[in-house]
Structure formats: structure tokens, C-alpha cells
């Protein structure tokens, strides 16, 4: 990576453990700015859209700061993580939430045939994007989630738990990962590095 500081903003709308993401970038030598200010977000070179918690209340918080209309208009690379990715989809069964509709797919709940949430390390497969440069098939990522995005046109990685689902999505400049790259050891750090270099 060149030494020019890159303006990276993590959207801070009150949902989730953003500290971990900020620290992960710091380990890569990039200082991320936490902000919910539309101007700051719009002028960033890279945007992280995090999220941990419940979908409908997270969406309420997004709406409160007007970010629900801003995010779909962003032009720079945007990476949704976990619930962030799910909110970028059409809808979520969690709290019957209407999503931002960036990814043309619905988010559903795992059935009680498996333990919910899925918690721990699982593999990502069928890797299709520069986001996964230098990452091998079957790389392990850390996941914690009860809801998943179906396999679809925009899937750039799949994972199997109860069924095969989309563990990463991409449409144009928008990327989403269900796993937590910031908690997925060196492989996760490679995903973050790749995102910075897109």
C-alpha cells in the first residue's frame, strides 16, 4: 500500500461494535474516522457500514440520521459488515424490516434445524471478487448471525450452514460481507486490505 493516507469513514449510527473495526484498520496502518455526518461520509474515499444487533431498530437509527437515503447514493467503495450487509438487501425477516434495496435479495432466518445463531468459524467458497484477492477458497472467517441472505446473482462468496447462502455480495461499488473480517485473524485483515486497495 502506498503511504498516502486514505480517507476512511466508519458510519457511526449507534449500532454495533465499531471499535473492533477501527482497531483492525489501525493494525493495517489506517486511521478510520467515525462519523454519521453526511458530508464527511460522502467525501470519504472508502466507507464502512457496520452493524450488530437487531435489524428494525438499526434501520430506525439509520432513518433518524437520514443515512437510509444517503447510503444508496454513495459512489465510492462501500463495505457493509454483518448487519450492515443485511440492511443493504431488499428486506429482512428480522422485525419485518424493509432494507436499503441495494442488493436484490431477501434476508431470512435459519430454521431451528440448526443452532441459532451460527457462531464461530466457517469457510467462504466460490469467491468471485477482487475483495478476495490473495484469499484461497475455503478460507475460514468468523461469523455470528441468525439471519442470512439467499444465494443470488450478486453473491461473491457462499457459505454453508443448514443451507448454502450468500456470505458476501457485490453490486457496483457496494460490497457486503456477512462475516467479521475485523475478527477473522490474518485472512480477515487481508479482506480489509483488499477493500482499501479496490
Amino acid at each position: 500500500m502506498d503511504s498516502k493516507p486514505l480517507k476512511l469513514v466508519i458510519i457511526d449510527y449507534g449500532a454495533g461494535n465499531i471499535k473492533s473495526i477501527q482497531f483492525a484498520f489501525k493494525r493495517l496502518g489506517v486511521d478510520a474516522i467515525l462519523s454519521n455526518n453526511p458530508e464527511v461520509i460522502t467525501s470519504a474515499e472508502r466507507v464502512i457500514f457496520p452493524g450488530v444487533g437487531e435489524a428494525s431498530s438499526a434501520m430506525k437509527m439509520l432513518k433518524k440520521s437520514g443515512l437510509d437515503t444517503l447510503i444508496p447514493t454513495l459512489k465510492q467503495p462501500v463495505l457493509g459488515i454483518c448487519l450492515g450487509m443485511q440492511l443493504m438487501c431488499n428486506s429482512s425477516e428480522e422485525g419485518n424490516t424493509k432494507g436499503l434495496g441495494i442488493f436484490n435479495v431477501d434476508v431470512k432466518r435459519f430454521s431451528s434445524a440448526v443452532k441459532v445463531p451460527q457462531m464461530g468459524w466457517n469457510t467462504i467458497n466460490e469467491l468471485k471478487s477482487n475483495l478476495f484477492r490473495n484469499i484461497e477458497e475455503d478460507a475460514f472467517m468468523y461469523l455470528v448471525h441468525s439471519f442470512y441472505a439467499d444465494m443470488c446473482q450478486e453473491a461473491i462468496a457462499s457459505t454453508t450452514y443448514e443451507l448454502k447462502y450468500a456470505s458476501a455480495l457485490q453490486k457496483d461499488n457496494f460490497y457486503g460481507v456477512q462475516f467479521h473480517p475485523e475478527k477473522s485473524s490474518v485472512v480477515g485483515e487481508q479482506v480489509l486490505r483488499n477493500f482499501l486497495e479496490l
Binding site: 489501525k26 475478527k183 477473522s184
Partner: peptide, 8 residues
């Protein structure tokens, strides 16, 4: 720990 460790 959060600053320096890359697992949960």
C-alpha cells in the same frame, strides 16, 4: 486486547 488481537 481489542487493539492488538484479531480474534473474538
Amino acid at each position: 486486547v481489542a487493539e492488538q488481537v484479531n480474534i473474538p
